[in-house]
Computed example of a mutant assay.
Amino acid sequence: MDQAQKQALQVTKEIVVKFIEVGRISPNNCHEFFSQIYHEVLRTIVSGQESESGSLESEEKSE
């Protein structure tokens, strides 16, 4: 499991726990939402890392 996956898993756990606390989902059906939330968080992390590396490359080219 790479760093992005570990980050996504941790964030997803926190989100699901918070949703359970506020009553948006129940512990009985959290498995229905966990995968969807995880994949969205992972996609966001990976696209953010790609954006950072792309901006670093463009800064290096402009120098």
Score class of each variant (00 low, 15 high):
residue 34 F to G: 00
residue 16 V to C: 14
residue 59 E to S: 07
residue 61 K to H: 15
residue 40 E to N: 11
residue 45 I to C: 08
residue 11 V to R: 13
residue 29 N to T: 06
residue 10 Q to M: 06
residue 29 N to H: 07
residue 22 V to H: 14
residue 34 F to V: 00
residue 47 S to E: 13
residue 12 T to V: 01
residue 51 S to A: 14
residue 7 Q to D: 05
residue 12 T to S: 08
residue 16 V to E: 04
residue 42 L to Y: 15
residue 33 F to T: 00
residue 2 D to T: 10
residue 48 G to R: 13
residue 47 S to N: 04
residue 9 L to K: 11
residue 35 S to P: 00
residue 23 G to L: 03
residue 45 I to T: 03
residue 38 Y to D: 02
residue 47 S to H: 10
residue 34 F to I: 00
residue 13 K to Q: 10
residue 10 Q to D: 08
residue 25 I to P: 12
residue 29 N to Y: 03
residue 52 E to P: 00
residue 41 V to L: 09
residue 8 A to Q: 04
residue 13 K to C: 01
residue 32 E to A: 10
residue 31 H to G: 06
residue 6 K to R: 09
residue 25 I to H: 10
residue 59 E to A: 12
residue 36 Q to R: 06
residue 50 E to A: 12
residue 11 V to F: 12
residue 26 S to W: 02
residue 6 K to E: 10
residue 60 E to F: 07
residue 8 A to T: 02
residue 29 N to G: 03
residue 34 F to R: 05
residue 46 V to I: 12
residue 25 I to Q: 05
residue 6 K to D: 03
residue 39 H to L: 10
residue 45 I to V: 09
residue 55 S to A: 03
residue 39 H to P: 00
residue 43 R to P: 00
residue 26 S to C: 04
residue 1 M to L: 07
residue 38 Y to F: 15
residue 44 T to K: 12
residue 38 Y to P: 01
residue 26 S to P: 02
residue 2 D to R: 04
residue 8 A to H: 08
residue 13 K to D: 10
residue 15 I to Q: 05
residue 10 Q to R: 09
residue 45 I to G: 04
residue 16 V to N: 05
residue 4 A to F: 15
residue 54 G to M: 08
residue 58 S to T: 02
residue 63 E to A: 03
residue 46 V to H: 03
residue 29 N to L: 01
residue 43 R to N: 11
residue 50 E to S: 04
residue 57 E to R: 15
residue 56 L to V: 07
residue 25 I to C: 06
residue 40 E to C: 02
residue 34 F to C: 01
residue 7 Q to H: 08
residue 16 V to L: 11
residue 42 L to E: 06
residue 50 E to P: 01
residue 24 R to Q: 09
residue 35 S to R: 12
residue 40 E to Q: 08
residue 4 A to L: 11
residue 30 C to I: 00
residue 30 C to E: 15
residue 31 H to A: 14
residue 49 Q to Y: 15
residue 32 E to P: 00
residue 40 E to H: 10
residue 29 N to W: 03
residue 18 K to D: 13
residue 17 V to N: 15
residue 60 E to C: 02
residue 35 S to M: 08
residue 4 A to W: 11
residue 17 V to Q: 15
residue 42 L to H: 09
residue 47 S to A: 07
residue 19 F to E: 13
residue 12 T to F: 05
residue 51 S to N: 07
residue 17 V to L: 11
residue 28 N to G: 14
residue 62 S to R: 15
residue 15 I to M: 06
residue 31 H to C: 03
residue 41 V to M: 11
residue 44 T to R: 10
residue 54 G to L: 07
residue 56 L to R: 15
residue 58 S to Y: 12
residue 12 T to G: 03
residue 50 E to Q: 12
residue 28 N to M: 08
residue 19 F to I: 00
residue 22 V to M: 12
residue 1 M to K: 05
residue 27 P to L: 01
residue 37 I to R: 04
residue 44 T to E: 10
residue 19 F to D: 07
residue 45 I to N: 03
residue 34 F to Q: 02
residue 50 E to R: 13
residue 24 R to K: 11
residue 15 I to K: 11
residue 63 E to F: 07
residue 31 H to P: 02
residue 52 E to A: 15
residue 52 E to V: 11
residue 20 I to Y: 07
